[in-house]
Write a protein that binds this DNA or RNA. Structure first.
Lengths: 341, 341
DNA sequence: TTTAGCATTCAACTAGCTTGACTGCTAAGT
DNA sequence: ACTTAGCAGTCAAGCTAGTTGAATGCTAAA
């Protein structure tokens, strides 16, 4: 493919992204005056169509990018603009609020992503497995229940109610036992240890405090209390749906987004660490996303990104995702450093 | 309005709710064989139209209920079926999971409401003001931050990170000071006390622990960390929107639902304690809801209900909201009792 | 007060027509 | 070999007119 064809393809894709209308040879001529006539452009467009980059919705219409066209555009033609300065400032401003619990930080980030990109913004929280336990505290709660507070190195706080009858003395002992044994360990290892313990033969002979400690741990780790996946900007999705003529057939994507588990699994599967990646249409493994594009980036601890129609502003989506992802990573890393001091 | 006219109106409304098609005199005749001819029904329908209960979408079409018609139907003609036994069982099953934190309980409840009614289900959490503080615990978190854990009488746990440099001894002192002073108090009173303290002249003379305690309290109470409003079943709303021909104009309602603050305020304003209430179309104070109906019920601690199109199954919505509301109230009340023991 | 009959109304559907925006092809030009 | 101009072909979209059929409203008789 020669330079002119590339430029024509670029024109077609970016014009279509802006306007939503099929792009004709004349439109290309007007917007990107290449010094050749519309007939030449038509010839090139026929070539691009033969190669599968663009297609006609019907016989005598202009051209529309295919998924392959979007893919080529994203891979070779995308001009990754820095995020506008005012946007950057707004974001920095946003992150200036005092460092709070992880959950709110992530929710805010998803919200930001949605607003800056005009897509559905999502942030998947770090998997517990790799994070390390910073501290565990048992808070008595009435006579027969405990509040177990787990603090991870990132400042994530998980609190969970567990049934247990312990005297203040026992509580103290179990508490220090747990901390002694688990502090600084990754959750994955703790989980493994708990599983191992319960497979142990003859464990009724170990000291009762330890047994109690394991019971509590098991209860806590078996359920995850906090939201792992934050999704904001559903409004954007709905607007896109209503604009599409066949919107009603696309409800599957809404259903997918309300299935936290499935969507999270999908994200973990496709995201790459530190790299912004787009999955366009049928490149997505999930059938519900056949007509959508998903932008993902692993930010070191989890995944964030955006979801929107094939016809989205990829340039903006890429810049914003990268910028926000790096920002979030920086915030979380500094939190980790700070805790380690 | 005589009995026959009421029955005809009832037929029209419930048939329209089921079918979505304008109801003709013949349809009424066929479904509710009243022993009179279609001409008579037509006469009655003309009367009902004159009174504003039904309307024609166009000249020679069947009749469709107006908001006034829905209102009359809800007030006088609604047969409040008990929830089907299988539904009840499913619900009871659902609530059997071990009593956990309030937040998850409410989210589940919203989810249930959405699924049983086919509407958007929402649950507004109890306002903090009226609930009493059960316990406050300060958990040290590194050298310069604290985790403040507030436990309310309902089992709601609010944890919040606060900046404070305290030695273990000071921490202990502040902790017991706070508990001594605040335990069992309603949050509203605590907030008032904090405000009062900061308006106090010459407060630099009070003992430093107390000052520190108030600073922490202030930081905690000034922000609310947890989600107050749980909304589930946006999918249902989406479907309703896509079915409507003028769906794109109705995006305001989606925007409203993502404005937690505004929607929560609205709910608190319109809901009545222990009573299921429907606001139909323009009865809603918010303009975005002009074409929607909202079912609300105060469940003793907050508000729950559903939101959907004017043409909804009011009978089912009422039964489900009442049933689930009472159930939730019972669960929360028993939690309160238990804590008090 | 109810009924039967009949004229009237009007959305929805269909078919045919026009328009205009594009394309694809061809033959001539560089 | 590539480019251009011109022109025929295609087809969605928009318009109009005509048809159909479901409902109504009215009137006069029961």
């Amino acid at each position: 493919m020669d330079e002119r064809k590339r430029l024509i393809l670029k024109q077609i894709v970016s014009h279509y992204i802006k306007s939503g209308e099929p792009v004709s040879s004349r439109t290309v001529l007007e917007h990107y005056n290449p010094g050749v006539s519309s007939a030449t452009i038509r010839n090139d467009m026929r070539y691009l169509e033969e190669q599968g980059y663009i297609a006609k919705p019907y016989c005598s219409a202009g051209r529309v990018p295919t998924e392959k066209g979007y893919r080529f555009f994203v891979d070779w033609l995308l001009e990754l603009a820095e995020l506008a300065h005012q946007d950057q400032h707004a974001l920095i401003e946003y992150y200036r609020f005092p460092r709070q619990d992880l959950e709110r930080l992530l929710r805010q980030t998803a919200f930001l992503l949605a607003n800056v990109t005009g897509l559905v913004g999502f942030v998947l929280a770090p998997g517990l497995e790799e994070t390390h336990l910073e501290r565990i505290t048992l808070v008595p709660l009435g006579s027969d229940r405990l509040l177990v507070v787990l603090v991870s190195e990132l400042g994530l706080v998980e609190s969970q109610v567990v049934e247990a009858r312990l005297s203040p003395g026992e509580l103290e002992e179990v508490n220090s036992l747990l901390n002694l044994r688990l502090r600084g360990q990754p959750f994955g290892a703790i989980l493994a240890e708990v599983r191992q313990f319960f497979e142990l033969e003859g464990r009724e002979w170990v000291e009762p405090e330890l047994r109690e400690a394991f019971a509590i741990l098991s209860a806590v780790l078996s359920r995850e209390g906090h939201r792992r996946l934050h999704i904001e900007g559903l409004l954007n999705l709905m607007e896109a749906l209503l604009r599409q003529p066949r919107g009603a057939e696309q409800l599957g994507v809404v259903k997918l987004l309300s299935d936290e588990r499935r969507f999270a699994e999908f994200l973990r599967e496709v995201a790459r660490e530190g790299e912004v990646r787009a999955l366009i249409g049928r490149e997505n493994p999930l059938p519900e996303l056949r007509h959508w594009s998903v932008i993902t980036m692993g930010y070191g601890f989890g995944v964030l990104g955006g979801l929107g129609p094939l016809r989205m502003d990829y340039s903006r989506a890429f810049s914003a995702t990268r910028y926000i992802g790096n920002r979030l990573r920086a915030i979380l890393s500094s939190a980790r450093e700070e805790v380690k001091d």
